[in-house]
Design a protein around this nucleic acid. Structure first.
Ligand code: ZN
Ligand code: ZN
Ligand code: ZN
Ligand code: ZN
Lengths: 166, 166
DNA sequence: ATGCTTATGTTATATTGTAACACGATATCA
DNA sequence: TGATATCGTGTTACAATATAACATAAGCAT
C-alpha cells in the first residue's frame, strides 16, 4: 500500500525481485492455509503477472506461456488460473483495461483501489482506508449493502510527468 | 446525485418519464452549447439507455434498435453513438459490466461513481464529493496527476435486501 | 452545382471470455 | 493393490464485446 511506504511501490528503480519473491511466498503460504494447490500452471501465471507492475491481459499471458514451448496453451487454462488467483485475492482485475495485476497483500479486506498511469500503464494499489468514511456514509444514506469496492483512478504517474513535456 | 435527494434517484416507483424527459432536454441543450448534433441515431441510443436505471450493453441496444425495423444496424454505428454520448458526458460506461448508463448531470466534473446492485442490476450514480479529500491526499502523496475517477461499488440495493430472504 | 465536412453503412476481423466434454493426475479408501 | 472419487488440465468450439478500413450518404458552405 502506497500510504505505508516512503516511495511508491513501483518506483522505477526499486528491487523488483523482492516483489516477486514476496508475492510467491505469500501465494505459497496462502495456499497452504486455505488447503489449495499452487500448481505449476497457476504459479507460472502468477509469475508472469508479477513480471511488472503493469496490468497484463489474459492473452498476453497465454503468449508468454507459449514462448519456448511446443504447444500453445488454450484460453480456458489461463482463465482458470486467473480465476483461482482472483478467488484467493492474489491478483486483481483492472476492469478499465481488461487486465490483471498482482496484489501485494491478499490478507487485507479485498478491495481494489488503483492508480493507473495512462502513459506507461503503471498501476499502483493504494490504501482504501481514506475512502472508508465516505463509503460508510454512502451505505447508510442509500440503504445499499456494499460488498465490493473497486476504484480506478487514471492519470499520469510522477515519472511520466517528469519525463514528458506536458 | 443521491446525496441531494430525499429518495434514491431510481426508487422503484419514481416518475421515470421525468428522468427521460430531463435527460433528453439536457442532451439537446448540451449539444447546442457544444455545437454538436444530436442525430436520430444518437437520440435513439440515448433513449434506449434511459429506458431504465440499469446499465445496458451495446449489443442489447443493437437488438432494441432492430425491433420493428427491416434492417439491423451494425455494431460500429452503435459504438459511434456511444462514443459520442460518452464524449459529451451524457452517459457513463460501467466497466465491470461492459455496459452503459445515462448520466443525470453531464455538467459536473465528469467522474464516474456508482452503486451497483448485483441482484437487480440497478446502478445509482452518487455524489463524488465525499471522496475528493481522500483523492486529493492520494494525489499529493503519490505524485500522480489524477485525471479520471471511476468507482464501482457493488452490493445489494435496499429494495433487493427487503424482498430477498438473505 | 461544387466541393467540404460529418455521420452512417458495410464487411470483415480483433479481442476477451466461456461452455461442454474428455483426459489425466493425485488422494483416499477397501 | 486396485477401485473410485476429486481435482486440474486439454481440447474444441463458440459467445460476447469492440474496432479497422473503406464506401456511401447527408448537410452545409462557397
Ligand atoms: Zn516491484
Ligand atoms: Zn507513467
Ligand atoms: Zn428514472
Ligand atoms: Zn437490487
Amino acid at each position: 500500500m502506497l500510504s505505508k511506504m516512503d516511495a511508491p511501490a513501483a518506483h522505477p528503480d526499486h528491487d523488483h525481485q523482492a516483489c516477486i519473491d514476496a508475492a510467491l511466498n505469500t501465494a505459497r503460504e496462502l495456499c497452504r492455509e486455505k488447503q489449495q494447490k499452487l500448481t505449476k500452471t497457476r504459479e507460472k501465471v502468477l509469475r508472469l503477472i508479477w513480471d511488472s507492475h503493469r496490468p497484463v491481459g489474459a492473452y498476453t499471458i497465454m503468449d508468454s506461456l507459449a514462448e519456448g514451448e511446443q504447444k500453445r496453451i488454450a484460453p480456458p487454462t489461463v482463465y482458470r488460473a486467473l480465476d483461482f488467483l482472483l478467488e484467493l485475492g492474489l491478483i486483481h482485475r483492472i476492469n478499465s483495461l481488461n487486465a490483471y495485476i498482482g496484489c501485494q497483500d491478499p490478507s487485507h479486506e479485498h478491495h481494489c483501489y488503483f492508480l493507473i498511469c495512462t502513459s506507461c500503464n503503471l498501476a499502483i494499489e493504494v490504501d482504501p482506508g481514506g475512502f472508508q468514511g465516505a463509503v460508510g456514509k454512502l451505505q447508510k444514506n442509500s440503504g445499499f449493502d456494499i460488498r465490493q469496492q473497486n476504484m480506478e483512478l487514471s492519470g499520469m504517474c510522477q515519472h511520466c510527468l517528469e519525463t514528458a513535456g506536458d
